[in-house]
């Protein structure tokens, strides 16, 4: 199987994630779409690693996973405090963060 097919699959998944991020109003689903995009980038990196015959791409994917875990922790904590104060999980209601 040519690694190209994996890169195309990764592009498709990234586009789906972008679509979800742009059209969904639920903040959790928007956040999950970001995760989807990160995952598709990981797939591209692993495919590149396979094509080049080195493990550097896999190490990159590993670091992306670590950063994604941190990002999820902070993001979900922010979603929870916003929900605590505003009682809403919709991105449309988060319009009063500025002063």
């Amino acid at each position: 199987m040519s690694p190209n097919a994996y890169v195309v699959l990764s592009a498709i998944l990234f586009s789906i994630g972008l679509l979800g991020f742009l059209i969904r109003r639920n903040v959790l689903i928007a956040f999950m779409s970001v995760e989807l995009m990160l995952n598709s980038a990981n797939l591209a990196m692993v495919a590149f690693s396979y094509a080049n015959g080195t493990l550097l791409g896999q190490v990159g994917a590993f670091f992306v996973m670590v950063v994604a875990a941190c990002e999820v922790v902070i993001g979900l904590a922010i979603i929870m405090i916003i929900f605590k104060t505003r009682r809403s999980a919709s991105v449309d209601d988060q319009n009063q963060l500025k002063h």
Binding site: N4, V7, S15
Partner: peptide, 23 residues
């Protein structure tokens, strides 16, 4: 998103990655 997807899929599909090196 559809425009972006078409763009990125065409770019990725046109074989930037050619060698199937294997690990």
């Amino acid at each position: 998103v559809f425009a972006f997807a078409a763009f990125i899929i065409v770019v990725a599909g046109n074989g930037i990655v050619t060698g199937a090196g294997g690990l």
